[in-house]
């Protein structure tokens, strides 16, 4: 999974609308408010051992991490139109939008 990044800067992506915390013990770094949301890839940040595995001392293959940009207003229905949120998201949480 530490191959070349799947998404290039500027690519439109969607964060998976997945809720592993409903299925049992887990550790995830994708905050709830971006799940299912569309965003734009800012840039890949490198490949890092998957924290979802590290948290349980399992073998942790590296995954590409991205900076992904979201508009604030559609998420919260408040804020100024141009305001944004930038979040580090692992590749396995992203799909093409």
């Amino acid at each position: 999974m530490s191959d070349a990044p799947r998404f290039a800067p500027g690519a439109a992506v969607r964060v998976k609308d997945d809720w592993p915390e409903r299925r049992g013990p887990c550790h995830i770094r994708t905050p709830h408010y971006i799940r299912g949301r569309r965003g734009t890839i800012v840039r890949p940040l490198g490949a890092f051992a998957n924290p979802e595995d590290l948290a349980f001392a399992r073998p942790a293959p590296k995954r590409t991490l991205y900076h992904v940009l979201f508009e604030q207003e559609p998420i919260w229905h408040e804020g100024k139109p141009a305001d944004t949120i930038m979040v580090e998201v692992f590749e396995h949480w992203l799909e093409e939008a």
């Binding site: 994708t30 604030q72 141009a82 305001d83 949120i85 580090e88 998201v89």
Partner: peptide, 28 residues
């Protein structure tokens, strides 16, 4: 969620022409 309100409470009022970009430090 409300970065402009938090900033304003602390005395920083940014004009609408400035994009407020919140950086949620979630990973590595």
């Amino acid at each position: 969620r409300e970065p402009r309100a938090v900033l304003a409470e602390w005395g920083l009022n940014l004009p609408d022409s400035v994009e407020v970009r919140v950086v949620d430090s979630t990973a590595d």
